[in-house]
Design a protein around this nucleic acid. Structure first.
Lengths: 249, 249
DNA sequence: CCAAAAGTGTTTGTATTACACCCATGT
DNA sequence: ACATGGGTGTAATACAAACACTTTTGG
């Protein structure tokens, strides 16, 4: 079965179970090798890259739909999630399926709700579904080199802006870093998101005064030099800081 | 024609021209008599108060739809506008029209996109449309005393939170105050949105250093005491501050 | 004259920034 | 030994918060 037939099959099913005209597109950010990445899928059909979006079931809360979409399309659960924008231009999506006729579910006009998600790439086992031929974390600076469908590039940019604003108000890291991490990894994450370098000593003090870290009795061995201490987040204080907000960086 | 018949009539029309399942609800804030107000309509049907929401035409950008809705339902143009949240619980709206059958357009499941708008009440000539028997600015502290339909109270609360966060990043006032205003009016606006009192002298210096005000050669006469100077916004600097953001209050 | 309005001064406290220094330690 | 990591000291700066005093002026 070729990719076009597969889409047609999906279309009929979709008409029955999903609300028309509404889609949700999660921009899932991950942090690895000192860089920010976005999870994207490449469709069999037309070989273009897309956010792992999906639709809302007729009998399902929108919030639940997004959780399900993340799970089904990217194999991700328990990610941090937040709505950050709505994309509703009238020709934003219809053109993509130009070789299908108007009855195709996917070819409707869609208003898409953008969700920002944070997740640690090393926790993911990437599974491409049957309409995708690839599922990958793409570094932010590689986005320019791939062919992105519809307005998904614009969606990612808005998500990134939101992330940047967010980090000056709320702590970020819990969903992006592994259980155990070093201070310089955390600092690098902040530097990457903010797009500027931070002073190590000041970062050390500030993050420590927040009280959101727990120093572990372990070190990361095997590096070329002194073994750095490992930390993890103190969940209670982290969540308290999430509620109360922080100051600026 | 009673209110139920009127809704039925609207329903048939609506099915033809609007996208199903999608609505937009603007929370329009106004400032008058030293207090924040929200524009609301009271439906003939069931006498409940609602935000002046509307639907999106099949051939219309979402952004344009919101502008049209504001114009048609509240007689407002050129308001500041910004999306602040999406409300998508599955039973959030269907119950309101319980005495109609399932074919009613309005009784569908709706996912509503919330928009925050700022407008000066004295610029509005309130026009109730034919499905509303009242259209009014309601003071925030009066909201508890009126019967608000669906989840619209929750939507207003989220909008207010967004407004509060917004004021610490961007200047606010251009769309909420008349052309010419006094410093104490502006201070009162800030105090109302932030929900706390500010020191006059410090406010004076801070707002002045922002450079977003123009002092006019006029005074407000007729008060009991010294006539206060009138100001207006310096549009260029105001917009620059909008782009660049400010500090905290 | 009086109360509101405009404008300025000062003090205290707290964060931020930028550097710099010292110690610890794995290879 | 040495590069990295951990931890602290400090001086300059910049605001923010609280308060108080003065001058102006419309009725």
């Amino acid at each position: 079965m070729d990719s076009k037939q597969q889409i047609l099959l999906r279309s009929n099913e979709a008409k029955e179970i999903y609300l028309p005209h509404i889609s949700a597109d999660p921009v899932i950010f991950g942090f690895e090798n000192n860089g920010l990445k976005v999870l994207m899928l490449q469709t069999n059909y037309r070989q273009k890259w897309l956010l792992p979006g999906g639709y809302v079931r007729k009998d399902e809360d929108l919030d639940d739909a997004v959780v399900r979409i993340l799970k089904d399309r990217a194999g991700i659960s328990d990610a941090y999630m937040e709505e950050f924008g709505v994309f509703g231009k009238k020709d934003r999506s219809e053109f993509f399926f130009e070789d299908f006729d108007e009855t195709l579910f996917h070819k409707q006009r869609f208003i898409s709700i953008g969700y920002l998600a944070l997740y640690n790439p090393s926790n993911t086992i990437l599974v491409k579904d049957d309409i995708s031929n690839a599922c990958d974390w793409i570094f932010l600076d590689e986005l320019d080199n791939i062919d992105i469908a519809m307005d998904h590039r614009e969606i990612i940019e808005k998500a990134l802006l939101t992330l940047r604003e967010k980090i000056s108000i709320k702590p970020i890291g819990y969903n992006l870093l592994p259980e155990k991490f070093t201070l310089s990894e955390l600092q690098k994450l902040y530097e990457t998101i903010l797009g500027k370098e931070l002073n190590r000593g000041n970062f050390y003090r500030k993050i420590k005064n927040l009280g959101i870290l727990k120093k572990l009795d372990e070190r990361r061995r095997g590096g070329a030099h002194k073994a750095p201490d490992l930390y993890s987040f103190d969940e209670q204080n982290y969540n308290k800081a999430l509620e109360n907000g922080l100051n600026n960086w």
